[in-house]
Structure formats: C-alpha cells, structure tokens
Design a protein around this nucleic acid. Structure first.
Lengths: 121, 121
DNA sequence: CTCGTAGTACGCCATCTGTCAAACTACGAG
DNA sequence: CTCGTAGTTTGACAGATGGCGTACTACGAG
C-alpha cells in the first residue's frame, strides 16, 4: 500500500451489486429494515461515516453480517460498492430524504435519544 | 340508544388492557409495528380520528385484525379502551411525539406521499 | 504464483409472523 | 332472558427471519 493517505483507493467496480432504483424504495421495506437492532446500529454508524462491512462491529458471525447488509441494500437504505477486496457501504441519504423527508433524521435522532435515556437511569 | 348525538357513550372500562408505559416504548418495536402494511394503514386512519377496530376496514379476518391491533398496542403505538361492546383505538401521539419527536409525522407524511406517487403513474 | 483478508453462497435450524377458522366471552337492545 | 354485534382466544399452518458454520470466490500484497 504505497502512501495510502490522500490517494483515492483502487475503487474497482469488481462487479456491480443490485440496488433498487429510487422509485422502487418502499416505506414499509425501509421501516422493516430499520426495525432490527443490528441493522439500526449499522445505519447509525453509516450516518456518520462510510464504512466497510468489517469495520462496523457487530456481535454476529460474518455470514449474518452479510445478510443484514444485504437486507439494508435491498430495502434501498444503503449502497454498496466494491473497493478492492473490501466493500464500502454508504447511507442513501439523498434518495431517502427525497422520498421520505425527515424520516431518516427523526429515526436517527430517536435512536440517539433512546440510547441516552438508557445510559442515564 | 336514547338520543345518541352529543352524549358521551357509556365508556365502560369493562376490563383494562395492558399498555406499555411511555418509558417501555422501544424505537425498534415501533418501527417494526409500522412496517406492516395493514398496521400502517390502521395508524394512518387513527392519525385522523379515533376508531373502533371494525370501522377501520381491513381486508383480513377478524382474528387477524385483533392480532394487528394487539401488536400496535403492545408496541405502544395505540391505546385501546372498551366502550360498551366496542373497543376504541387512539394513536398515542403524545407519548410518541415526546419520545421520538417528528418520527410519527414523517412516517405519516411519507406514507401519504408514497400513496400519491403510486396514484399518479 | 501464493497467501491472507474480505466478503458471498449455501444449507440448516429455531423462532417469529401473518393468516385463517371455529369456538368462546361481553355487552346493549328488546 | 334472549339475541345479535364486537371482539378474543386458541390452534393450525405456511412462509419469512435471524442466526450459525462451512466451503467458496475475489482481490491485493509479497
């Protein structure tokens, strides 16, 4: 890895994953995707920074992890692109905000607040 | 039924149902409850007016209907009180808005917009 | 070329979910 | 008291879901 900083990594498309178009994203599907604690945790991480599957720490096996990321992708919540051997995940903020204004933000805010309430008993 | 209009109906408590306290309402549970099309439909009706189970028209059997209302109640999304032989359902707007500000409104707005998009192809 | 790392694919399994029908309870009207 | 309406309970069932391990593929580093 020659001088990794500031250099755009390979970003090889390898093979494109199948993402639903903006118009194919359904509210019910998004809510369902967000209703799982593991997936909600993933989304909260991705709201702050993009991340590969493995640097979102989840207390589940690799295959289960793959499963959750796929559910999120198929629901239209995240996008995934290969970069070398890694896969980079991003929140599809633009699409979600366009389709369901305010929804993502209120879910994220609600999750944070719920955390805080739990943290201060 | 003597002059039914303007008279508060019996409103007999019959037997109180078990509702989670405000602090027991979990975001994941609420999102899960809202992620079913039938239940989302119920919530959208209740956002406009309170209603008995039977005057929310659902294309499912009575027992399935009972099931969905129970899921909503146990998730903390609605409250149910007996009034005579009927059961009146209300959105727990105050609790939801206090816990998850903006969430309910954005879900309702998103549902409406999704409807409109589907209605105008 | 070879190796290690990242992630996928495939079964398998237990549990949960949505659905129904049928039998039952609760209450108001007569 | 009797009847009809509203809703519950129970049991069944098919399908989805979340979880695992193992075997596999793909790519970058040496």
């Amino acid at each position: 890895m020659p001088s990794p900083e500031a250099s755009t990594p390979p970003l090889a498309p390898g093979r494109a994953l199948d993402h639903p178009g903006r118009d194919a994203i359904r509210l019910e599907g998004v809510l369902h995707a967000l209703s799982d604690p593991m997936r909600l945790r993933v989304v909260r991480v991705l709201a702050e920074r993009e991340a590969t599957c493995s640097d979102v720490e989840l207390p589940v096996s690799k295959s289960t992890c793959t499963h959750h990321f796929r559910v999120l992708r198929e629901a239209g919540v995240i996008s995934q692109v290969y970069r070398g051997t890694a896969k980079v995940n991003c929140l599809r903020r633009d699409d979600l905000d366009a389709l369901f204004p305010g929804l993502l933000d209120s879910v994220l805010a609600a999750a944070s607040e719920q955390d805080q309430r739990a943290g201060a008993p």
